[in-house]
């Protein structure tokens, strides 16, 4: 924070009105202190569940059965990476971890490519029914995927896509498109008209305008969409539960199967859950600005 900002803050107390008594100002100060404390407590409260899971994943079975994760503060020596070693050595779990990439990466790339193409047409090419099509896309934003599970399962069965990674990817792409088009179209229409017109004057084709003018300007929006879509697909359980088989299952589905096998063994469950969280957490922490923007723009999904 810069010095100027500090000065402004001191000059304008939060209580606002000028010429207030010393007492009022003191109360405002204390009130502010209380707000700080309350919010700090809320933040800690919010982190406890994840922290507990992390610690549980770092303790072995006997330690976890004996007492709760919070005893780690008195027994830090119990921490071990053994659960992770065991989990990664489990062929099915490791394969599912890789599968999650095989599903999430193509599903993200395809959505970004298809949606930016379609959004360009909706934003800058006039054609009959453009308005209707845009409204349909907006309507599809909230479409529950349950509506498509049974028909698409049948369709994929007929096409030989049921139980394959391709099938899971295609389903994710289809249901990711409305939001992606909505987000990118909004951004594309905000591009200054002169920019597009100038390119058209120069005789550029639509494809060249799209590639040379629109895409470079739209990088932040595309970044938001990419992060959002990647996490959305990575975190899916329901779609894969229906359309993936044992060999194409992503980590959520594999862990769900292990849920029965491990039963109440929180050491392995927590390790698996944390393994599935590592990638999203990393992506979130590195690209949080884009992710937050994506979620806010996609408030309707």
């Amino acid at each position: 924070m810069t010095l100027v900002a500090e000065e402004v803050r001191i000059d304008v107390p939060v209580s606002g009105a000028p010429r207030r008594g010393v007492l009022t100002r003191l109360v405002a100060r204390l009130g502010n202190g209380a707000v700080q404390v309350v919010l700090a407590l809320v933040a800690v409260f919010w982190m406890v569940p994840v922290f507990g899971l992390l610690i549980a994943s770092l303790r072995d079975e006997s330690a976890n059965t004996a007492d709760g994760w919070w005893t780690v503060f008195t027994k830090p020596a119990e921490l071990t990476l053994a659960n992770y070693a065991e989990l990664v050595a489990n062929q099915a779990v490791w394969q599912s971890f890789l599968n999650t990439f095989y599903i999430a990466v193509p599903a993200t790339v395809l959505v970004v490519v298809m949606a930016s193409l379609a959004s360009y047409a909706l934003a800058w090419i006039e054609f009959p029914g453009r308005e209707t099509l845009t409204v349909v896309v907006v309507g599809l934003l909230v479409m529950p995927i349950q509506v498509a599970l049974i028909p698409v399962a049948k369709l994929f069965g007929a096409l030989g896509l049921f139980g394959t990674i391709t099938g899971v990817v295609l389903f994710h792409v289809a249901f990711g498109l409305p939001f992606a088009i909505f987000l990118l179209r909004n951004f594309f229409t905000g591009i200054p008209r002169d920019l597009i017109e100038a390119a058209r004057m120069d005789g550029a084709t639509e494809w060249v305008i799209f590639k040379r003018v629109v895409l470079p300007v739209a990088k932040p929006a595309i970044a938001s969409l990419t992060i959002f879509q990647f996490l959305w697909v990575w975190n899916d359980l329901l779609v894969a539960l229906v359309f993936a088989d044992q060999d194409s299952a992503p980590i959520t589905v594999a862990l769900r199967a292990q849920l029965r096998q491990f039963g109440t063994n929180i050491d392995m469950l927590s390790t698996g859950a944390f393994l599935s969280m590592v990638v999203p957490l990393g992506v979130f922490l590195v690209f949080q600005k884009y992710f937050v923007q994506g979620v806010l723009a996609g408030s309707t999904k």
Binding site: V42, A43, W46, P49, V50, G52, L53, L231, W234, N235, D236, L237, T252, L255, R256, L269, S270, G272, A273, F274, S276, M277, P280, L281, V283, F284, Q288, F291, V292, V295
Partner: peptide, 15 residues
């Protein structure tokens, strides 16, 4: 407070 949005509902369930 935003962090839980980034992880899967499945992992949140385990948590």
């Amino acid at each position: 407070l935003f962090m839980p949005m980034a992880i899967s509902l499945f992992a949140s369930g385990i948590i």
